[in-house]
Simulated assay, not measured.
Amino acid sequence: MGLIAGFFYAYACSVMIGLTEVDDRTFITTMQWINATVRNGWFAASFFGALPLTALTVVLHLRRGARAVLPWAIAALFSYASAFAVTLGISVPLNETLAAAGPADAITDPAAVRAAYEDVWVNWNIVRTIASTVALACLARALMVHARLRGPAPVTPGKTEAMAYTSAGALRE
């Protein structure tokens, strides 16, 4: 979840801001190449993996003793599911439309192509950035609640734990 939230965040706070400064043809070419190359195993692992792993978190905490974790895990699942839906329902179709426009140097009105794409894509990317970041925060909270429920980890006495201080503050074993 952290990887995919960071991925969307990087676009929101750097990539798309940087691309506002380039001409229309450069913008179109760059986004077409990014969209074509983002479909790789590294991206797929985080984008497609976050949803079932979060769902697994929900399932594993359905037992009675872990119910306090459940609201946070469910909130994370729904939050990331919304980011996932925005990607598949809005971002990908926009990317496909941009790809179908053809090479940027052959487009007769690149300003119109960019205008139909950029603001919509950027705004929905902010939505999925927020949703995936909220999901990450919910999972972090679920982890804290889970740790609190389990109590402190058992300590195996070793030399350090077996040492004590005298009333004068000197270390003794």
Rank of each mutant, 00 (worst) to 15 (best):
A81H: 02
I130H: 00
E96N: 15
I107C: 06
M16P: 01
G102M: 07
D105S: 14
F43Y: 13
N123P: 02
I4C: 02
R128C: 04
V134G: 00
L60R: 15
A116K: 04
K159F: 09
A76G: 12
A44C: 06
I34F: 14
L136A: 05
V22K: 02
L51I: 14
E96I: 12
T97V: 07
V155D: 08
A168D: 15
T133P: 00
R63W: 10
A112I: 06
A83W: 01
Y165F: 15
A170K: 14
A75Y: 04
G102F: 05
T87G: 06
T57V: 07
P110C: 12
P71K: 05
I34V: 15
A76C: 09
G6K: 01
P154K: 09
G49C: 08
A73K: 01
G18N: 14
A100I: 04
G89Q: 08
P93D: 09
P110S: 11
A106K: 13
G102A: 10
C138D: 03
H61G: 00
L19F: 13
A147Q: 14
L136Y: 01
R67N: 11
M144A: 15
M1P: 03
A115R: 11
G41Q: 07
A106P: 00
F78A: 13
S91C: 11
A142W: 00
L3T: 07
G102H: 07
I126H: 10
V22H: 07
G158R: 11
N95H: 05
T30M: 10
L53P: 00
V155F: 04
A5L: 06
G6V: 04
M16F: 12
A153S: 14
G2L: 08
P103E: 15
E96V: 13
A55C: 10
R172G: 01
P71M: 07
V69A: 05
A106W: 06
P152R: 15
I4G: 01
F43V: 03
R63H: 11
R67M: 09
A116F: 02
R172A: 13
W33S: 13
T156G: 06
L94N: 08
A137P: 01
A85S: 14
T87C: 09
G65C: 06
G89H: 08
S132D: 03
A170Y: 07
L3P: 00
T29Q: 11
G2T: 06
V69F: 04
A115D: 15
V134Y: 00
D105V: 11
V113I: 14
T156C: 07
A5W: 01
P52I: 03
R150W: 08
L88G: 11
